[in-house]
Computed example of a mutant assay.
Amino acid sequence: MIPAELTQAMEADHQALNALVRGDPEPKLEMFSRAEDVTLANPLGPPVRGFDQVVAATRRAVAQLREGEPVRFERISQAITADLAYVVEIERSRAKLGGADELIPFALRATTVFRREEDGVWRICHRHADPITTPRPIESLAEQD
């Protein structure tokens, strides 16, 4: 059984992602831990560590999208302990990406790790999202110049 506070945090995170695709990063940033070990690996850059770096990376990403539609979530897996939980989901939405004038569909494979912090609040301590949502050939692993 999922604790009520964690269910609320997961729902708040989904609402924050809806705001994010509309161009508002603030609700998502509220979800992140302020601890030194917080990490973010978003699909537009290398992983970052520390709240200030998470804020900067999130704002850079959100500056490149706008007017998005609510995200649809496909839950793949989850696990929960007393103070730690993770969720693996496919997140599907449409937004104006970059300089596009029309809504473009996109999907992200996302893993979000929540931690119950000292104040009892569940916050994101790690998030990784990338566009890999379908099978790919092994050659896709090759680094490109």
Rank of each mutant, 00 (worst) to 15 (best):
A4D: 01
T133R: 03
E143N: 00
L97I: 15
I80D: 03
A41S: 14
T58I: 00
A4N: 02
N18A: 08
E74D: 13
L29Q: 04
P43C: 01
P137Y: 07
A9Q: 00
L65F: 10
A41Q: 12
P137A: 11
D130C: 07
A100Y: 07
T81R: 02
A9L: 07
R94H: 08
Q64E: 15
P27A: 05
T112C: 00
G23I: 14
V38N: 08
E91G: 09
P70W: 09
R127A: 14
L108S: 05
A56P: 01
T58K: 01
V88N: 12
A82P: 07
F114R: 03
R66L: 00
E117G: 06
P27L: 07
F106Q: 00
A41I: 01
A79M: 10
V62W: 06
A41M: 12
R94K: 12
L44S: 13
P3Q: 01
D52C: 07
L84P: 02
A85W: 04
D83I: 09
I124L: 12
D37M: 02
M31I: 08
E11S: 12
A82Y: 05
T134Q: 11
R109F: 11
G99H: 10
M31P: 04
A63M: 05
I90T: 10
D130T: 09
L108E: 05
D145F: 02
D145C: 08
V54I: 11
L29E: 10
G45Y: 01
N42I: 06
S33W: 02
L141K: 12
L29K: 03
Y86H: 13
V88C: 09
E102K: 06
L29W: 07
D13F: 14
F106A: 03
E143F: 09
A85F: 10
V55F: 01
F32N: 03
D37R: 10
R115F: 00
R136I: 13
L84V: 12
G23E: 01
G99A: 13
P27K: 05
N18G: 05
E91M: 12
A100K: 00
R75E: 15
Q64N: 15
R66S: 13
Q53C: 03
T7H: 04
P47R: 12
L103Q: 04
R66V: 11
T7A: 05
